[in-house]
């Protein structure tokens, strides 16, 4: 027999499917701000936040919401090579695949963009931009200077801010939208809604405010950390459910299980 906790566990496997988007106070605010920024005459918009704060989810949502109204494209993972990046831009601009055995000439691409100015307004959502490195970022800036393409660039704070040549960036970006870790309230909404979407009412109810508080303390309200923690909590629960059901309370989650998950993930050192 399959434990209901096995289902609950799978709910928290990392995914960036926009079908799973949940409206939270923080994500709603950031969404509105991005939507408004797109309408302003800006060349670049920066979506900023630590890893796991929901940037990709938000970009995906923005894409879904605007794709019928605007010429918008979502580059979810960085291109494999510089060459491939140009191919992707070429495809966006011309709607055609590059003929075989040809290469994109970058300055020709920029010139092409300049000609499009005033005729088309293209929005490109560029996720994981901290990966691109200074050289490619400079190319992206040149493209956006043509004003035919507007980039929404998502990147996260790294310990070494130097990696993305941030100073160089700041002078050119006029709008910064920042996503922070979730508040306790947002985290509670997130966890409960995710479970309720799969009809896991009893499990959702077994997580009381004090438990959410604990989870928030360990994960600092980071969604990805929270996903990992929920997965571990339900994995331990699943074991007890199947092997030692006397050790589990189905209506009230035990602190012990949460602490065991925290030990497993290294939040607590014993």
């Amino acid at each position: 027999m399959k434990s209901r906790y096995a289902v609950a566990k799978e709910v928290f496997v990392d995914s960036v499917d926009t079908m799973d988007y949940i409206e939270l106070e923080s994500s709603y605010k950031a969404f509105k701000k991005l939507e408004q920024s797109i309408e302003k005459p800006l060349k670049m918009i920066l979506l900023f936040g630590s890893p796991g704060t929901g940037k990709s989810m938000l970009l995906g949502r923005l894409y879904e919401k605007l794709k019928d109204k605007k010429e918008i494209h979502y580059f979810d993972t960085p291109a494999i090579s510089q060459k491939e990046f140009y191919h992707k831009i070429f495809l966006v601009l011309t709607g055609k695949e590059l003929p075989p055995n040809t290469e994109v000439n970058f300055s020709a691409l920029v010139n092409y963009c300049k000609k499009l100015r005033g005729k088309r307004e293209i929005v490109i959502l560029l996720d994981e931009a901290q990966m691109y490195g200074p050289e490619l970022m400079e190319k992206i800036r040149l493209l956006s200077d043509s004003r035919a393409i507007k980039f929404i660039v998502s990147l996260h704070k790294t310990e070494d801010e130097d990696l993305i040549a941030k100073a160089h960036f700041q002078s050119r970006i006029w709008e910064v939208v920042e996503l922070k870790n979730a508040s306790v309230e947002d985290l509670a909404t997130y966890i409960h809604k995710k479970l309720l979407k799969r009809n896991l009412f009893e499990i959702a109810n077994s997580l009381k405010p004090k438990h959410i508080q604990m989870i928030h303390k360990f994960t600092r309200g980071n969604f990805r950390e929270c996903n990992k923690m929920m997965y571990a909590i339900f994995e331990v629960s699943e074991y007890y459910d199947l092997h030692e059901p006397n050790k589990i309370n189905y209506t009230n989650m035990s602190r012990k299980i949460i602490e065991m998950a925290a030990i497993k993930l290294g939040y607590i050192h014993v």
Binding site: P51, I80, S81, E84, M131, G133, L136, T158, E159, L163
Partner: peptide, 17 residues
């Protein structure tokens, strides 16, 4: 340091995939 590891692996890829 997995963020940095991914970054440098990617930089490698940009040059030779």
């Amino acid at each position: 340091q997995y963020e940095k590891a991914a970054y440098w692996a990617y930089q490698t890829n940009l040059i030779n995939e």
